[in-house]
């Protein structure tokens, strides 16, 4: 048993150490895997704001992940083909600059989260799960047949987008960008958890009536959390697209939404470091379990089942149990 603070530092430090060790040992693919872990963690940290802090079980976060991805894909595609992006009333030029792409990705996914949230948050529980799922499916089917941007084939971006002062094609430099963003998101999550907003959101989950009696609107609190959550997952989507230099409708698929939830529960719900532990485990399992048997997904399923049934609180809960249950 170790303290939560130690656990957080160990996991984050460990991720950085793996990437640096891979650099020294000249194992670029390990750096790519570490980058994948950082990006999936970021997406799950975003979801964790809604799911962990707000108690909103969104089964449709792939929608924001995909919107972030397509924001990157479409902007970079227009930059790469030197065609302006026609928005009806006016046209804009594409861009290969990461900061601009991130901003657009976050704004668009926040907008989508606002619209979906306005509808979905009128309900709760299982309705909320299914409605978020259905909205993500809507995006999935739409992009599948959206021939202007490749439909099912998706969009390939031949050269990774740029960041001022860095060469993003060097794996360790791109890892650095993702790692710093992940740390910033974790810091944000930590601050939120303890800020008045986070406390009010937590109370809105446990005792909505009490929140209302002090003059706060649970609905508004949840909506803000959901929008923030969507924006961070959208940013992760843009990075994920840049990692693969490719976007396609599979980023919107319901398997993606499911995997994000899996990451959080594997690691530990509402735990700061939960998503990171979950992402590490998931990527490692995916990578090494596959080497053993063609039917490795059966074992992935069995492991997930065992964790749900017997390791409540996820791996973070096993390593560093909290004295009082979080629910």
């Amino acid at each position: 048993m170790i303290s939560e603070r130690m656990l957080n530092l160990t996991v984050i430090g460990g991720l950085l150490a793996v990437a640096l060790a891979a650099l020294v040992l000249d194992q670029p693919f390990t750096i790519t895997l570490a980058t994948r872990v950082a990006i999936l963690s970021l997406a799950a940290v975003g979801l964790n704001i809604a799911l962990g802090l707000g108690g909103l079980v969104s089964f449709g976060h792939a929608a924001f992940f995909g919107i972030g991805g397509y924001a990157m894909g479409i902007l970079a595609y227009h930059a790469q083909t030197y065609t302006p992006l026609d928005l009806g009333l006016f046209t804009v030029a594409g861009t290969k600059s990461m900061p601009v792409i991130w901003l657009v990705a976050m704004v668009l996914s926040a907008l989508a989260a606002l619209l979906i949230g306005l509808l979905a948050l009128r309900t709760s529980g299982v309705y909320f799960i299914m409605i978020t799922l259905a909205f993500a499916q809507m995006f999935y089917y739409f992009t599948l047949s959206w021939s202007a941007y490749g439909g099912e084939d998706g969009l390939s971006i031949y050269i990774r987008n740029g960041f001022p002062g860095l060469n993003t094609l060097v794996p360790i430099q791109f890892f650095g960008i993702c790692f710093v963003i992940l740390c910033a998101a974790l810091y944000l999550f930590h601050r939120l958890e303890h800020a008045p907003f986070g406390l009010a959101l937590g109370s809105a989950r446990q005792a909505p009536m009490r929140v209302e009696t002090v003059g706060l609107s649970p609905m508004r609190l949840r909506l803000v959390a959901f929008v923030l959550s969507g924006a961070i997952t959208g940013l992760a989507g843009a990075l994920f697209a840049d990692l693969n230099r490719f976007v396609s409708p599979t980023m919107f698929s319901w398997h993606m939404s499911g995997e994000l939830i899996v990451l959080i529960i594997l690691g530990g719900v509402a735990r700061l470091i939960g998503p990171v532990i979950g992402a590490v485990l998931f990527v490692v399992l995916e990578h090494y379990l596959g080497g053993m048997t063609e039917f490795w997904k059966i074992w992935l399923g069995v492991i997930l089942l065992l964790i749900v049934l017997f390791a409540r609180g996820g791996v973070a809960g096993l390593l560093s149990p909290r004295k009082v249950g979080h629910d």
């Binding site: 899996v262 529960i265 059966i298 399923g301």
Partner: peptide, 14 residues
């Protein structure tokens, strides 16, 4: 519901 979603998602894989 969260645990139910995850456990039944795992069942799909199996």
């Amino acid at each position: 519901h969260l645990d139910q979603v995850l456990a039944t998602f795992a069942l799909i894989l199996v």
